[in-house]
């Protein structure tokens, strides 16, 4: 069964898992305790992409439960409009697989390990399930 590709509105959210190994527990600030490495756009031939779940078809708990070890991950969200606008300026597309919520945040310009993208994503994310 294949799902149709839909347009994702700016007002919707995207859920993303953060593994406990990417948390700096010496930091008390909820945002600053997330290490930038938690945001990991994977290099592709035509850019980089990062898998997320669209809030239309997933809850934050469902996103957490898709992890191999759900007890070891938290979940943050991004507002789609903030991902698409300055200064982040990334693209968001619905790419359903067996998981209808599956979507990607992508950039057409590959950059080794993307320090800029990772800082910006860390800045605009919000905890949904904090670890």
């Amino acid at each position: 069964m294949s799902f149709p590709i839909e347009l994702i509105p700016d007002t919707d959210k995207l859920f993303y898992r953060i593994h406990t190994q990417y948390i700096d527990y010496t930091e008390s600030d909820a945002k600053k305790k997330i290490k930038p490495g938690a945001f990991d756009p994977i290099p592709k031939p035509d850019g980089t992409e990062m898998s997320v779940d669209w809030s239309k078809y997933s809850t934050s708990i469902e996103t957490q439960n898709r992890a191999r070890k759900p007890e070891r991950v938290g979940v943050v969200s991004f507002v789609v409009g903030e991902v698409r606008s300055q200064p982040t300026l990334l693209k968001v597309e619905h790419r359903p697989t067996l998981n209808q919520a599956h979507s990607i945040i992508f950039d057409v310009l590959p950059n080794a390990n993307n320090p800029e993208i990772r800082i910006n994503l860390r800045r605009i994310c919000q905890w949904e399930i904090e670890i």
Binding site: Y22, K35, P36, G37, N113, P115, R118
Partner: peptide, 11 residues
């Protein structure tokens, strides 16, 4: 801070 980065890199 020195952190574990993506794909074997260091931040």
């Amino acid at each position: 801070k020195i952190y574990n980065g993506p794909r074997g890199s260091i931040d």
